[in-house]
Write a protein that binds this DNA or RNA. Structure first.
Length: 574
RNA sequence: CGGGGUGUAGCGCAGCCUGGUAGCGCAACUGCUUUGGGAGCAGUGGGUCGGGAGUUCGAAUCUCUCCACCCCGACCA
């Protein structure tokens, strides 16, 4: 591709409303443009990358025996009413009505459609197992779309659905997809982790997420460095500490703590560690009342664990400040478990702390040297916190390490939820109708592109892994339009690359070298060759890999073989 | 949805308080010079000042209203 024939649409300035680096770089590189909140066009450069991602997915899905099809975005309401999700789904489901006043939606996912296809097309267990997939545009009317294509309303997803006659078959299909996903993410060339996850509202027993690791990731994942345990932090059990509670050493006292509202204030103000302080959170109870949850000051509440507790409202809701002050008589910031007239549940780690600091349930007062069992009743204990770095790994050896990730893939076992509600049955060998066991498998295609950038960039721009790069090699001639020798050498090299099927980008624009270099680095092409009059006179060309610190000068007569060696796969044999 | 904020040229912004008919930088276009890290000079084009209503002789500016977009939303107890 010649730059002069391409729509290279780079921006020098960073658009103000792009908060995260991938969004900024995608806009600056001219990959995407926004039309409305969470609605983007993919410009030619961005689309090339998107297609790379899709192609890898397609090849590996095909290899795993899945069959590609294409389902509609516009979906009739009847199917959603059959599955029951027309009423269950919140406002994320974009509903609309056609000219005949028929209800419909723009599909956020395709279980209903694929089940409808299945029940019309498949009648016999002999046709199973079966796995249909598509790469298609989804629409979810997010409350707050942000981070560019990371969380947009319209996005491209690969979704696959497997059908089996029994659970064992479903497990086999799931395992095949698990392996296919590993192959896909390996081929992307990204640093990722597969972790076990909460199956959430979709149901089913087994579920795994695939996360691209990046410090900016919205999810925390925990894994054992010694064992093979890895899971989304929201699902990880915090094992109760093995140690006994430390003994009380002093009488409980009340101290004045004006202006100290947070654990940090308190720890600094009293000169104790956050671990020594109790964090008391007030949440809504099922019956409309309140429940107190007590954590060690340095720990965080795990909402999933908390909402499963007896008596706690699900989904978890923190109590309104007004309700707290009205019920307890003291403001938030001074609440503690001692003398608190509420159902109280204490995290295991908080329950072994002796001589702790906690709110005194009077404004601007805290207790010090408080002790469980002495100053109040023995606590009701539960696991309600997120695990932290260094916690013991459940079901495995070693300690947990916490990393941040971006969820780009999720595989589930659905069971018979949709096949039963939508009456999709096949006949088994005895001629009896059986609702098949389904699995569903998603990859956020557009999100993979953004995640790849979050993980791989520098001050100059994007650094694509080779498998996702829009072009493999940038040829940057200096004075292409002035120097006949430069033009000659450049055209020769360009022609050679085209012949070899190499995806090459020739920047033949009549621009100053600095502009060309900056653009090539911004759009992240992995390799760069510079041809200049100066170099050619010295019988040299310059090469620089995108993440190399500096360029190297190499003999001009090795240029052809050098390029061939860069891409052995793409070179013609011999 | 609640709270806060912003809408002026493709992008980034000033002008608004104190009303007088719109400006800067980048980008674009033309010409000349320049050519190894986002050039210089000269010139050109481009704006319903988010929409509507109102006040006024006169509104980007004041008032009302609608819209769009952005940010924050529980770890604080």
């Amino acid at each position: 591709m010649r730059a002069s024939r391409f729509h290279l649409a780079t921006l020098k300035e960073t658009p103000v409303d792009a908060e995260i680096i991938s969004h900024q770089l995608m806009l600056r590189a001219g990959m995407i443009r926004r039309h409305a909140a969470g609605i983007y066009s993919w410009l030619p450069l961005g689309l090339r990358i998107l297609r790379k991602v899709e192609q890898i997915i397609r090849e590996e899905m095909d290899r795993a025996g899945a069959l590609e099809l294409l389902m509609p975005s516009f979906q009739p309401a009847e199917l959603w009413q059959e599955s029951g999700r027309w009423d269950q789904f919140g406002p994320e489901l974009l509903r609309l009505r056609d000219r005949h006043d028929r209800d419909a939606c723009i599909g956020p996912t395709h279980e209903e459609i694929v089940t409808d296809i299945f029940r019309r097309e498949v009648n016999s267990y002999r046709q199973l197992p079966l796995n249909f997939y598509q790469i298609q545009t989804k629409f979810r009317d997010e409350i707050r779309p942000r981070f560019g294509v990371m969380r947009s309303r319209e996005f491209i997803m690969k979704d696959a659905y497997s059908f089996d006659i029994d659970k064992e078959g479903m497990q086999r299909s799931y395992d095949i997809m698990d392996q296919a996903y590993i192959n896909i993410f390996d081929r992307f060339g990204l640093d990722y982790r597969a972790v076990s996850a909460d199956s959430g509202a979709i149901g089913g027993s087994t579920s795994q997420e695939f996360h691209v690791l990046a410090d900016s990731g919205e999810d925390a994942i925990a894994f054992s460095e010694q064992g093979d345990f890895a899971a989304n932090i929201e699902t990880v059990e915090a094992l109760p500490p093995r140690i006994e509670r430390s003994a009380a050493s002093a009488e409980m006292q009340t101290v004045d703590t004006p202006g100290m509202y947070t654990i940090e204030d308190l720890a600094n103000g009293l000169g104790v560690s956050a671990q020594q302080c109790m964090k008391t959170l007030i949440v809504e109870a099922e019956d409309g009342g309140l429940v107190a949850l007590v954590l060690r000051g340095d720990h965080e509440l795990n909402a999933l664990k908390a909402e499963r507790l007896d008596g706690v409202a699900s989904p978890l809701r923190l109590a309104q400040r007004e309700q707290i002050t009205a019920t307890l008589g003291s403001d938030i910031g001074s609440i503690g478990p001692i003398g608190l007239n509420l159902k109280t549940i204490v995290d295991h780690s908080a329950a072994v702390v002796g001589d702790f600091v906690c709110g005194a349930n009077q404004d601007d007062k805290h207790f010090i040297n408080a002790n469980w069992g002495r100053d109040c009743e023995e606590p009701v204990k539960a696991d309600i916190r997120n695990v932290v770095d260094g916690d013991p790994s459940p079901g495995s050896t070693g300690q947990l390490k916490i990393l941040r990730g971006i969820e780009v893939g999720h595989i589930f076992q659905l069971g018979q939820k949709y096949s039963e509600s939508m009456q999709a049955a096949v006949l088994d060998e005895n001629g009896k109708g059986i609702a098949p066991f389904m699995g569903c498998y998603g990859i956020g295609v557009t999100r993979v592109v953004a995640a790849a950038i979050e993980q791989n960039h520098d001050a100059q721009g994007i650094i694509w892994p080779a498998a996702l790069a829009p072009f493999q090699l940038a040829i940057c001639p200096i004075n292409y339009h002035k120097s006949e020798v430069v033009k000659q050498a450049t055209d020769d090299l360009y022609q050679q690359c085209l012949t070899r099927g190499l995806e090459v980008f020739l920047d033949d624009r009549a621009l100053r070298p600095g502009v060309i270099f900056s653009d090539m680095e911004l759009i992240g092409i992995p390799h760069r060759i510079v041809l200049s009059e100066r170099g050619i006179t010295a019988q040299q060309f310059e090469y620089k890999g995108r993440s190399d610190d500096s360029a190297q000068e190499l003999p001009l007569d090795e240029l052809k073989t050098f390029v061939d060696k860069l891409y052995p796969d793409q070179c013609a044999p011999g």
